[in-house]
Amino acid sequence: MGKGILIEGVGKRYGTGDTAVDALKSVNMHVAPGEVVGLIGPSGSGKTTLLKCLGAVIEPTAGRMVLGDQVIYDKGWRIPDLRALRRDRIGFVFQAPYLIPFLDVTDNVALLPMLAGVPNAEARKRANELLKALDIEHRARAMPSQLSGGEQQRVAIARGLVNRPPVILADEPTAPLDSERALTVIRILNDMARRFETAVIVVTHDEKIIPTFKRIYHIRDGVTHEEAGEGRAFQ
């Protein structure tokens, strides 16, 4: 994978003319393979906007983005199939769970490997392993509407990780979780990063998990500043 994530001078302007909003002005970030970095900033500072740009959900209006050794954006998309990029190379944990209401928990997670062509049984096996790690496997046959908010969020996290993508973007993944489970999520992200050389960005407000990052980016008014974190180990 080489470089992990590299973001240079990325900007995003919503709308045009008088109503234009510069959500991102100049964002510069670097996440190495195997690294988990935190992204923190006040509400409305552009955190979600940045993850959406990086996740090819919306198009930036300036700058350059590199995933692995491939330039994906340079004043315009540089790859033809953004959906395949999202499916195969980016694990996205959205700020809200957005589960598919007509699929049960297992299949909500297993759908991703299935979409990538993995046979059903194998996909479900992978899904169940993750659900077990996230302590939600006892609800595997339940429908999303039967789960609590925190349970739904854990299913959404499992879905973001199940394809073992080289990049994981998590937008406040632990917000609805108790501190023990929040730390479990962070541990799983760190494990994945280490084992599969994944580059992970975690947006968070969560005081309990901020100390776990070795490096943290602060974002304010669409501009990022890097600082060292405590990098406190778990155990």
Partner: peptide, 16 residues
């Protein structure tokens, strides 16, 4: 429509 948008987000093909 919401689910379809999410399906697109997680990379479901138009064909599917």
């Amino acid at each position: 429509i919401r689910e379809i948008a999410v399906l697109k987000l997680i990379g479901t093909r138009n064909r599917t």
